[in-house]
């Protein structure tokens, strides 16, 4: 796998869009969390009662959850990036050339998912750094490791968004279609579906089990969980469901790529 990863890195390393999108992504993580932090501070200054009532979302231990929730809004950056990395291969027909030159079809798919896994690890690490900084800035003396299970949720969510994006890329093969569907589904359709399933048809908690929603539910709005995701299932259920989705994306991609004509 190291050999495959090295080759994958050769493809990515000189691809400008990779660095631009990664930069945007990491800057956005820092930015969106800082905006939240800033707004929160102004709110606290003006309405001190609020913090006493709800607890500070940017202090420990809530910060882990808060950063995860805030960062989830910019997951469309790595999503688009990985759609592009995948559909580039189809555009350049290099997915064929890699096989002709001696890769197995399975290797082509596996290394993409492993690369996404590593990228998600780096993104998670960055989230941790942001959380520690903002947490310390809020209340240095309250530092605590409680709530760090949220780091795992951040990782699962990042990897899930990227894997879902790659699944769309291999399904539609065209970057435009895959990116449009990724956005429309993630921002609009899934939200409508969740609401309909849970509240219109009273099938709660089934609405929480949709592919992106299941990870969103893991990292809810830090002071609104009881209102927004009232009937959400327990955390371990959400984790298992999202792992099932991850395995399914991989197996589907593998199956499609190993059986189809390229």
């Amino acid at each position: 796998m190291t050999e495959l990863l090295k080759i994958e890195w050769m493809k990515v390393r000189n691809y400008k869009a990779f660095w631009i999108f990664s930069l945007f992504y990491f800057v956005s993580i820092a930015g969106i969390n800082y905006i939240g932090f800033y707004v929160n501070r102004i709110t606290v200054e003006n309405v001190p009662m609020g913090e006493a009532l709800l607890g500070s979302p940017f202090g420990f231990p809530k910060i882990w959850n808060t950063v995860g929730f805030m960062s989830s809004w910019v997951l469309y950056f790595p999503g688009i990036l990985f759609i592009m990395l995948f559909t580039n291969e189809f555009n350049f027909k290099t997915h064929r050339q890699n096989i002709i030159d001696g890769w197995e079809r399975k290797q082509f798919i596996s290394v993409k998912f492993v690369f996404a896994f590593l990228f998600s690890l780096v993104a998670t690490l960055f989230n941790v750094i942001v959380a520690v900084i903002l947490g310390l800035a809020t209340s240095a003396k309250n530092f605590s490791f409680s709530g760090t299970e949220n780091i795992l949720y951040i990782f699962i969510q990042t990897f899930s968004y990227i894997s879902f994006a790659m699944f769309l890329a291999i399904l539609f093969r065209r970057s435009g279609v895959a990116i449009a569907i990724f956005f429309l589904y993630g921002l609009i359709f899934e939200w409508i579906l969740t609401t309909l399933i849970n509240f219109k048809f009273n099938l709660e908690p089934w609405g929480y089990f949709l592919p992106l929603q299941v990870t969103d539910t893991m990292l809810p709005l830090p002071f609104g969980k009881k209102i927004l995701y009232k009937g959400a299932p327990e955390m371990w259920v959400l984790v298992i469901i999202s792992l099932i989705y991850l395995v399914a994306y991989y197996l589907f991609s593998l199956r499609k790529f190993t059986r189809d004509d390229l």
Binding site: E3, K6, I7, M10, K11, N14, Y15, K16, N88, F92, K93, T94, R96, Q97, N98, I99, I100, D101, G102, W103
Partner: peptide
């Protein structure tokens, strides 16, 4: 397939990479 050199009708390469970088990928595979 590693023992075979294949030339297809259309050349398939990464358009954003140079000739050398493209061949480095081919050589690595």
């Amino acid at each position: 397939r590693r023992r075979i050199g294949t030339l297809l009708e259309t050349p398939n390469f990464y358009s954003y990479l140079s000739a050398t970088k493209n061949l480095e990928i081919t050589a690595a595979i």
